[in-house]
Nucleic acid binder design. Sequence first.
RNA 1: GGGGAAGUGGCGAAAUGGCAGACGCGCAUGCCUUAGGAGCAUGUGUCUUAACAGACGUGUGGGUUCGAAUCCCACCUUCCCCACCA
Length: 830
Amino acid sequence: MTNIASRTERNAAVKYSPADIEAKWQGRWAADQLYKAEDSVPGKENWYALTMFPYPSGDVHIGHWFAYTPADAHARFMRMQGYNVMHPQGFDSFGLPAENAAISRNIDPREWTIANMDNMRRQFNLMGASYDWSRELATCLPDYYRWNQFFFLKFFEKDIAYRKNGAANWCPKDQTTLANEQVKDGACERCGTTVVRREMPQWFFRITDYADELLEMDSIDWPEKIKVMQRNWIGRSTGVTIGFDVSEYVEAGDADKIQTFTTRIDTVYGVTFVVLAPEHPLAETLTQPGQKAEVDAYIENARKQSEIERTSTEREKTGVHTGAFATNPLNGEKVPVLIGDYVLATYGTGAVMGVPAHDQRDFIFAKKFGLSIRVVVAPDGWSGEALAEAYIAPGTQVNSAEFDGLPSQEGMQKIADKIEANGWGSRTVTYHLRDWLISRQRYWGTPIPILYCDNCGTVPVPEQDLPVLLPENVEFTPTGQSPLTLDDDFVNTTCPNCDGAAKRETDTMDTFVDSSWYHLRFTSPGLMEEPFDSERVKQWVPVHQYMGGAEHAVMHLLYSRFFNKALRDIGFVEFDEPYARLFNQGTLTRDHMKISKRANPLNPEPIVERFGTDTLRCYLMFLGPWDQGGDWSDQAINGISRWLHRVWDLTLRDTTDPTQSDPKAERELERMSHVTTGRVVTDMKQFKFNTTIAALMEYTNDLSRIADSNGVSRETWTSAIERLLLHLAPLAPHIAEELWQQTGHRYSVHLQSTPDWDEAKATSDTETIVVQINGKVREQLQLPAGVSEDAALEAAMASEKVQRYTDGSEIIKKIFVPGRLMNIVVRPGR
RNA sequence: GGGGAAGUGGCGAAAUGGCAGACGCGCAUGCCUUAGGAGCAUGUGUCUUAACAGACGUGUGGGUUCGAAUCCCACCUUCCCCACCA
C-alpha cells in the first residue's frame, strides 16, 4: 500500500505546472499539423468552423481571447463528435489603422502590418487554438487582393458595380468617403468624427438590387436579433409615389412633376404644401425671382451643415418658400412649394407631400410657416375642431371627395387605385438601404482596376493584367485626395483598347470587400489560377458555423450576404447564403466597464504566465453564457485554477484498492459518468460552456469523494478519469493532452471521440419525489425509480410530515408528475 | 419616436411550468503547514427562534394554473440597435 508520505512526495514531484506543458504540446501539435483539415475524409461529414478574422492591430488582447477560445473549444468538440473540422484563421489586413500608424511612426504600412501579423500569430499560438495555419490568408497580399479586383471586373461587366457622381459621406479626419453603414449617429464609425457630405464621383455596388432577397432569412439559422437589425437597416416600406404638377415653371421637355413618396396616401386630400430637400434638382429651377436670394442662402447653409446637425430631432424646423405652386392631381388644388432640410435627399424621392393634420413633422412645419392644416382622416367622435397635434392613427375619411366616410385603411387602397388608373402615380416600395459605396481615398487598400482613357472613356483593366499592384513608396499622408493620385508611375498608363494615354483610377476599395468572400478563399489556400476551387467550395460552404460579434450586423454580415448572391448570379457559387449558422458572442467587460488599453488594461500574456492558457480559456468560458458577454473578475479566475489543479492531482493520484470494490459505489459512479456526458454534450452543442464546466466540476467533486472512499475497481476508476479528460480536451487542451499521456494513452487526446452516453445508465435506481400540500413542499421521499402514482401516494400518506397537513382535511385533488412530485390539494376541515 | 435584449444572494450565475440559488468567487469558523498570490474540511438568501421548525423571497402590480423566476396583461429600470425614413 502507498503510504501517506510517499504519496505526498510523489505528488509534489509532479505538481501541475502549466508553463511546463503548454508550450511543449503547442509545439508538438504544430509540428504534427494535428489540425490540418483534409478536404474530405471518408465516413466523416465536413464542419467548417469560422470565426470573424481579426484586424492585425499588433496585439492579441483579452477581447480576442474571449471571441476565439470558446469558438475553438466548440470546433474541437465538433471534431471529437466525429466531424472533419476545418478551423482556419487569417488577417483582415488592409485598412486605416496601418496607414495611420505608418504616418505617425514614419514607416511603411506594409512593414507595420507584416510585423503585426507575425507577432499576433505567435500570440495566437499561446491560446492553444486548433487553427489550420496551412490555410492562413492575409487580405493585403497581392495573391488575395487580385481576386477583389477580379470580382470587381466581373461586377462591372454585369453592371453590379457602377460609378456615379453624388453627395457622399465624408470623414474629415480620416479623409475618405464612407458607406452609409459606416456612419453611426452622424459620425464616422471608426474615429467618431462628424461626417459631412461631399460631392464626388464614387464607385458603388448595387446591393439595393438584392434588398428583397436580403430580407429573406428563413433558410439561415442566425440569432433573431441580427435578422431584425438587418431587416430594419434594409427598411422596406410600401406606399405610393405621386407626382405634383409644376409644368408652368419648367422648360418644355424637362421634368414637370415633383415626385413624392408617401406611406399614407389616404391623407392625400390633406396636402397643403410640398417640401423639397435642399439638394433636390428642382429646388433651384422652381425658385421664383423674388425668392432667389433667400433660397440660395438657405441651400448654401444646408450644404455646410453636418449630417449630425441636420438630422437632430431636437432642432427647430427650418425652411424657405420657393414662390412656386404645385398641383395636387386629386383635387386640382395648387399648394405652395417650400424647401426644408427636414426632408432628406437620400430617402424616397427627396420630396414630401405636406400633410400637417396627419404627420407630426409636417404639423410643426405648417404651424411655423402659417400653412393651413386640413383634417382628412377623422378620429372617432371628431366634430371639426382644430387639432393640437397631428392625428397619426387610422380613422374615417373626411374632406376626401368621393372617399368620404370610408375607413382610412380602405380609403388608402381605393385612392391608390384611382391614382394608378389615372396615371398620376403608382404603388412603390422604398428602402432605407443605399447602394454600397466602396471607393476610399486612402492608400492601404485594393486598387480599383479601372482606367480612364480620353478616347475610350472608362475602361476595365484586362483580366490578364491583374493584379493592379499597390505601388510602394507612395506619399500617403491624407490630403483629401487619393494618395495614389500623387504617384505618376502608377497613374499614367496606356489604354488597352486604343494604346492611347490613360489614367488609372486612384481610389482603393472599402476593406469590407476583402472580408465579403474570405471564407471562400480558406477552402483553396494559395490557388493561383482562380479565386477558389469550386469543388472544394461545394464541400465546405455555406460555412456550417460562423462566430463573431454583433457589431457587424449591418456591415460585414450584410455585405457578405450580398456578395454571395452577386457571385451566385454571375455563376461562381451555387448556394444563396454564405453562413448557415451564426453565433454572436457578447462583450467582455471588467467591473462592468468596457475594457480599454488606457483605463483598465487586461493583457492576456501575464495571465497566461501566472495561471496558464487552459485556466484562462476555461475561465473566459465559465463567466456566463457566451452570447451575453461576461464580466472579468481578478479573483474568480482562482476557482478555475484550483479546479484544474484538483483534476491534475486526482488523475495522477494512486487511489484505488482493488480489494475494496463496492457494487453500489460502482453503479453510482457509472450513473454520474453518464449524467455528466449527457450534460456536456447537450450544453457544448449549444455553446453553453459555463454549464459544461459546472458539470465537469461537479464530476470532479464526485470523483474526489469516491477516491477518498476507495470504493471502485481500477477499471471503473480509470474509465471515469478517461471520460473526464475527454470532456476536458476541447476546453483545456493542454492539461488534457498531458494527463492523457501520463495515464498511459496514445497521442493524441484530440483525435479521440466524445465518450458514449447511455441514458439508461444515467438513470438512478431511486428518485426523489417531492410531496407538496397545496403547492407547498412539505416532504421529500426517496422512492424506487419509476414509482407508480399509487405507490407514491401511499408513501406520501405514510409520512408524518404530510399527515400533519392532511389530517382532518378533505383531499380534493392529487397531481402526480412521474419522477418529480406529488401535489396533494386539500380543503381544511372545520 | 421605432425595434430588440435583459432585471434572481455580497458578486459571476443556474434552473424556461414541478425542490429557487447548481457551479464558482467572496466571506466565516476550524485543520494543516518553517507562511502561500497555498491546500483541506464545514458553513453561508432574508426574517422569527435557544433549538426543532416556520414565514418570506427571483424589478413592481395584477392574472392564468394544483403549482410561476419561467406563461399572459400593465408598469418601472438598465443596456443595445435604428431614427426628421415621409
